[in-house]
Design a binder for these strands. Structure first.
Lengths: 256, 256
DNA sequence: CGTCGGCTTGATTGTGCTCAACCCGGGTGG
DNA sequence: CCACCCGGGTTGAGCACAATCAAGCCGACG
């Protein structure tokens, strides 16, 4: 299902299109979404594309980062590993998400492609330069970082207080929503999507062991909350039912 | 020890000074630290101070927020509560930290003063207005949010992968560092500081129960890692020893 | 056909949670 | 002045959920 496409080969269909920002699938959501034409053409002059195969590292913790950029397609993980090998994923980068830390030469985390990833990269210092001059760019980036901060905080609630079953359900709900978004619909009723992560990656994200992830997925299957087709393809017969399992507030109380 | 100071009364010694930004103790670290004189005087025209007593709410989740601002002194907690009462602290606001979400009318979290807090507030819409025009302001805020994001991610590692003892040790190390910072020294050797949080608040921050917090503190005391004087006053005989207990990388390997 | 990675399932263990009793110090009211 | 209460904290006993250790399955690939 996942194609391996080394960056030095001319990649598949979509990729040629992305040499033009006008055709970019994430144009309206990425950092550059509010830039003026002159800013855009400057960005275009400092950008380059690179494809990473599933499993390939985009950057290691502590390594100097010459670029910043946006995920155009695919999923990448941001994670931290302790000396004794315990690992925690601290972020999941999806299309239009921003990679890198303007103002710092290194990132403190490993960033690894979970599926094949197409990255739109900008030279870091040139980008930082534009950032100091363009409120459109810095305000958009600020907004995106505030959203990431909210996401990180929601994840803190999950890691600190949710049960294993709630954690798995929450993750499945995120994937379901994300998938619905990509097809420009809302997540309701019956849904079908693929898991972009292995059991171990899910475990690293959820602060669990892979055995517990596997067991809880089996339990949700047994209880009819989900139906599996193979290991990676998931059907959710009733999204509301899945949401009940996440422990989150049932959005929309009785109040109008 | 903690004075109750309603904002409409003229508060204690330090507070009169803070009507002038020039004397502000957090001047060099807050959002406004890189503003030009004209921007500063605009900010000065839209600012007001308010003191919150320990335990008092600064804002509730979902409530409309008319202001954004900076913590001048004291400690505030940012937390999220689930329907069934489980609570997770997702941030700790210390002097110079920013409160509020420009671009959104509400915050999704409760913000509560843990000790007495002095807040320097700006009208939200006026602040947002300045933000779109001032790269100095928006870049400083961006930088601060990136730091908060890093802190949140470090906390995710703690919540997902550390043991109870490591969690407590990590929190104590944070307080120790913070205290050393305030006295403009580095955390090394023997240290003495106060806990700004109750056992329950620590538990909410660490994703533990208050009983576990209490037990682990007792254990660290028994093992000589810390010495307690009363419930709140802590002596760390050897900071390096405490760091060993956090599970974090021993910074500075053999490599030069 | 054998191997290997990703996954599932089982048995057992252990860390941290739950429930519960009790301590301590400060404030209040009789 | 003392009795009482109350919030915050400590400690204990038992339990449960997820971790650990271990075996085996399944499908892809050489």
């Amino acid at each position: 299902m996942i194609l391996i496409n080394p960056g030095y080969l001319m990649p598949q269909n979509s990729s040629r299109l992305q040499t033009e920002c006008g055709d970019c699938p994430i144009r309206h959501r990425a950092v550059c979404s509010r830039c003026e034409p002159d800013e855009l053409s400057f960005l275009e002059s400092i950008k380059s594309y690179k494809t990473f195969a599933a499993g390939e590292a985009i950057t290691w913790a502590g390594e100097e980062l010459r670029f910043v950029g946006s995920v155009v397609s695919g999923v990448a993980s941001v994670s931290h590993t302790m000396e004794d090998g315990r690992r925690q994923m601290v972020g999941l980068l999806l299309p239009s998400d921003f990679v890198g830390r303007p103002g710092r030469r290194t990132t403190p985390y490993d960033v690894v492609a979970a599926t094949e990833v197409l990255l739109c990269r900008f030279d870091r210092t040139a980008f930082e330069n534009l950032l100091t001059k363009s409120p459109a760019l810095s305000n958009r980036l600020l907004e995106m970082m505030l959203d990431e901060l909210d996401a990180a905080r929601e994840w803190m609630l999950l890691l600190g207080r949710k049960t294993a079953r709630e954690k798995i359900s929450s993750l499945l709900a995120i994937f379901a929503r994300r998938d619905a978004n990509l097809r420009k619909s809302r997540a309701t009723g019956k849904l079908l999507f693929d898991l972009p992560l292995t059991r171990e990656e899910m475990a690293d994200y959820l602060g669990l062991t892979l055995e517990t992830v596997s067991r809880q997925i089996s339990a949700l299957k047994r209880d009819g909350v989900i139906v599996l087709d193979g290991k990676r393809s998931v059907t959710v017969p009733d999204f509301a039912r899945l949401l009940d399992e996440t422990g989150d507030d049932t959005d929309g109380g009785i109040v109008a």
